[in-house]
Computed example of a mutant assay.
Amino acid sequence: MRLVYEQISEAEMIFGMPLGLRNVPDKLVWHFTKNGTYSVKSGYWVARDMMSRQHADRARSSTNGCKEVWEKIWGINAPHKIKVFMWRAVKGFLPCATNLKQKKILEDSRCWQCGWNNESVMHVLWDCLKVKKIWKKTFLQGVCRVWQEPTFLDLVHHICSTATRSELETFCFTAWWIWRNRNLHRYEEKSLEPEEVA
């Protein structure tokens, strides 16, 4: 009832506004230019400005989410090397094949373990079929095939928001062992079984 009353009073206020003494027809005005006329150039700059503001808003919100993730990761009971590894993985600083190809160190960015997909941080630590066998041995066995996160940061954020501190520690240690096992396989031609890694 109150909402209807407020709308009626607003309508009365709008109808009570004087329109002016001159009888001038309405016209469209583009307020993003000095002369009020639309141009493709001005439309382009408005669209770019809108996109950069949206990007900045997304970056601000993801930074706030990252703060919580970092507080949880730096707060786990683990050696410093595990925490630094997680920081490097989330930031995408691990020397996986995709990153090495971008730096022109490698010509082929395929995964060294499965040979199928590009070896990104997300692939080598979560998406690779050989890695899934390891995650199935942990507390993530029910979701390792279901969760389809676009980046490792998104995955870590998801885990930080759902896992206990002990589970987060298990996740960090397991991710580190997966990376270590990948390096053993690649450089020393050794490989641990999923049970040994998990």
Rank of each mutant, 00 (worst) to 15 (best):
Y5L: 07
V121C: 08
S161R: 12
A175N: 03
R48K: 14
S109C: 09
E68P: 00
E107D: 03
T37Q: 12
R2D: 06
V84T: 10
S9F: 13
S52I: 09
G65M: 10
V24H: 02
C128H: 11
A97N: 15
L100V: 01
L153A: 12
I8K: 15
K103G: 00
R110N: 14
R60F: 09
I8E: 14
M1R: 04
A59K: 04
E10R: 08
M17Y: 13
V40T: 14
W179D: 01
S191V: 15
I73H: 04
L140K: 07
K83L: 07
H123D: 02
M17G: 15
F32M: 11
M122T: 03
M51S: 13
M51N: 13
K81T: 04
W112H: 01
F171G: 02
C114P: 08
S61A: 11
S161M: 11
C128L: 05
S161W: 05
F171K: 06
C96Y: 05
F15P: 00
F171T: 00
D127W: 01
T151H: 07
C96A: 07
N181E: 02
W135R: 04
G75V: 12
F139I: 15
W70A: 01
A89N: 08
S52K: 05
W176C: 09
E149H: 04
E119F: 08
G43R: 00
G43V: 00
N118D: 14
